[in-house]
Design a protein around this nucleic acid. Structure first.
Lengths: 199, 199, 199, 199
DNA sequence: AATGAATGAGCCTTCATTCAT
DNA sequence: AATGAATGAAGGCTCATTCAT
């Protein structure tokens, strides 16, 4: 009965849909999901309130689209980084590069990352996308390592753990919350730890 | 400039305030902050809606109190565990114990942990309490290790990193999100990693 | 989860609930159900929009209450009229009395009658109340006639048909839509017809 | 003072206008006037939303056209039935035929009948068309009866009353709302009543 | 201190109608 | 004539907070 969401084909429409997503992206970042209302999204996107519901099912649907954009923003650079890793290679060189890339990404997407993550506890769909993302990255990285001749028991577990470490550190690094921490030193510790993990 | 918040002195009042906090704790856990309304909190606490504002500044103020309870729930067992560590001791034995304790805590407080964490991105006060908690635990642990004769460069950074790892793993372990992960194997990897960190 | 409708016990509250119903009654009469909004009902009742939802589940719930009032307005006088009929009696005297009473009622409740009836096609609950009303009146009247010694085959059908006729005429009479009709003459025809029906 | 409504001359246009009316007819029947939106009408008619306003003033204007169709659906069969009545004839045979015809019509148009009637209380134009319909039928029938040699005082009133009875019964019969009613028996009562009316 | 009724701003969403193409 | 995207006013409803008692 209610399925009138336009799947925009024309350039103009696609661009408008993207503007709404972009507006959602910004506002969710700045004010959080609950602090943002649809009227404000429409306004920032330069469209009327009504048309928002021409492109999206409801407010949450905008969130899901914003999430997809974010997920892509995160996924693509990581994957393209993996692709660039070719023999001869040394883990010692690779690991810092990955770490720096993840940090860079975190820096760029810090606020939306927080806004979205904060919803994963109450929104099943949001949670499952984050899980899938982790799954995909874990798998891609594990495959890569194996293809590069690195073997180990519990490869998946190690890789996943490595990913957790990296994420956790990137988070620390970007938020820079603890004054007494020397993040540069910490970065070296992280690298060393990761290196040992796969040796 | 309203400041009519009663600082309850009488036993009856203190108990009532606590009942409200407890109700908030439960409901925020179950439904999240935005999914809970103050009327429901009052109802569950067995008090009137109005009196909530006799004890708390606003809804967020309840949250802060719930947060304090939570922080304490987390902090106390960890600290008391540290206190029990006395020479002669081996890191190899201690680390799994700490890990298991943190996991136990996460299990017990999983939902409220999520509800509260999800607010740390939009609420300065919530964030700063979490930071302080980390600070305190880091410091206590570092001090402990030093007092037990373990020395190292960048002790603080290592300890903080260790804490991140432990938290991150406990999270993984408790949420059990990825079917393909053997969490028992992962646990061993984490222990080994932590051990190497301080060797 | 949502069952917070106050069942007002105190006089003040009951009176307020009644004021809202009264406002609904008037506005639905004047503007129809779809032409009336809840804000307007609240305003006319002299209350805030919010409190309306303290007394009623939703807008339709107000309608149902208005309906109940209306049903009662119709039912009570009819029944009390029946009660007054005691032997010795003549149908010839009784029938015009009933007719006039029904006409009087229609006059008084014309607009709300229309507003409510117009919803019976789209609202199950509204429809079923009207049906019940007819059922009850039919049954009471049939019982009355029998108790007064009037016997006939298909008594129920005759009574129901009589009721239809009466309603139909009252409608005609009150609305006075057709200029060329001499409603006084028509009234006599109706009386005669009804009389023959039970002879 | 907009008056850009096309009076379609070309066949294609006329057909398109009719498709919209037909779609309105169906949807108003199924969902009622307020449950139907213009976009849905356009969709069902296979035209664009915009063009609806090329053929109709507004949503209500579609309703009026639907009403005209309905009125015709009702009027034509009745009139043609009257036309077939030629001497020698007996009222006793004629009356059941008319009754059955009206019932048939009610069956066929039950839902749209309800949808339209429910609007007559709030829409002057709708009401007046129903009144005119009754006027015309009353007049045609009265004329017919006279031409067939049936004379009586207050002929118009009797005829109109007869029409009310027929309508009322057809309504009862088609809606079949009261379980305890034997509608077949009731039908006989109605026929007898009508017969006596003109004797 | 306590109650719970009351407030009213604010939110999401719908839809009749218009407009650029 | 036709399209369908766009508009924006309006509506039902919620809920943090206040107030009369």
């Amino acid at each position: 009965m209610k399925n009138n969401i336009r799947q925009p084909q024309q350039e103009r429409s696609i661009e408008k849909k993207n503007r709404i997503i972009q507006a959602g992206y910004e506002l969710f970042s700045e004010l959080g999901y609950y602090g943002t209302n649809t009227a404000e999204i429409a306004k920032r996107a330069g469209v009327s309130t009504g048309i928002v519901y021409g492109y999206f099912l409801d407010k949450r649907d905008i969130l899901i689209c914003v999430l997809d954009i974010y997920i892509n923003n995160v996924f693509e650079p990581i994957i393209s980084l993996f692709d660039k890793i070719t023999p001869p290679f040394s883990l010692k060189e690779i690991i810092p590069k990955i770490l720096d890339e993840v940090i860079k990404m975190h820096k760029k997407n810090r606020k939306i990352h927080e806004a979205l993550h904060s919803l994963s506890s109450s929104d099943e769909a949001v949670l499952s996308r984050f899980i899938s993302l982790e799954d995909e990255i874990t798998e891609k990285f594990a495959t890569k390592l194996v293809s590069l001749g690195i073997k180990s028991d519990n490869m998946i577990e190690k890789v996943h753990f490595a990913m957790d470490i990296i994420q956790s550190f990137a988070h620390e690094y970007v938020f820079d919350k603890h004054e007494y921490i020397d993040y540069i030193a910490m970065r070296d510790i992280v690298c060393t730890t990761l290196l040992k993990l796969f040796k």
